[in-house]
Computed example of a mutant assay.
Amino acid sequence: MDLTPHATRFPSCGGCQKPCSTTHEYCERTVRDLPILGRAVRLSVLLRRVGCRDCGKRMEAVSWLDR
């Protein structure tokens, strides 16, 4: 399953949680999720690396994704 960020939503800094308007780059991560009907589930998540004024370059915060 592929998950991409919503184009009109600004990402939040993974450090200070403040909204960031600049995206430095995109990184694709594969996340293992719980199995469904006995089948393995893998999520392909496109994350943004943001330029935060306070923290510098950080990965965006995703509320449902653990570090």
Rank of each mutant, 00 (worst) to 15 (best):
R39G: 00
G38S: 02
H24V: 06
V50Q: 06
A61T: 03
D33V: 01
V45A: 03
P19W: 03
C20Y: 09
F10V: 02
V31L: 15
Y26P: 00
P11S: 07
R58M: 12
V50K: 04
T22V: 12
P35Y: 07
L46M: 15
L47R: 11
R49E: 03
L47E: 13
G56I: 03
D33Y: 05
C52D: 04
Q17N: 12
T23I: 15
P35E: 13
F10T: 05
A40F: 01
C16L: 06
I36Q: 11
C52G: 07
R58Y: 01
A40D: 14
R29W: 03
L34I: 08
I36D: 01
L34S: 11
S63V: 12
L37I: 04
P11F: 06
P11W: 07
R53A: 15
C20T: 13
M59R: 02
P35F: 09
G56Y: 04
K18N: 12
A61S: 13
C55F: 08
R49V: 06
S63A: 15
K18H: 10
H24Y: 15
S21Q: 15
V31Y: 12
M59L: 15
R29S: 01
V62S: 12
S63C: 13
R48I: 08
T30W: 04
S63N: 10
R32S: 10
L37W: 06
R32C: 02
S44A: 09
L34P: 00
C13P: 05
S12Y: 09
L43V: 06
T23M: 08
R48L: 06
E25I: 01
G38D: 05
C20R: 05
S44N: 09
T22Q: 14
R53H: 11
L37Q: 12
G51C: 14
R58G: 01
V45W: 05
R39F: 09
R29K: 13
L37G: 02
M59S: 03
E28L: 09
C55E: 09
T22G: 00
E60F: 10
R53Y: 07
L46Q: 12
K57H: 11
E25Q: 12
E28M: 08
R32D: 12
I36H: 05
E60T: 08
K57P: 01
K18F: 01
L43G: 00
L46W: 14
C55P: 05
G15L: 02
V45K: 04
T22R: 15
V62R: 14
T22N: 11
P35S: 11
R48Y: 06
R39N: 12
I36A: 10
G14T: 09
R9P: 00
G51N: 14
K18D: 11
R58D: 01
L47W: 01
L34Y: 04
L47S: 08
R32P: 00
K57E: 09
A40S: 10
D54K: 08
V62M: 14
V50D: 05
G38F: 08
T22M: 11
E28T: 15
G56T: 02
A61V: 02
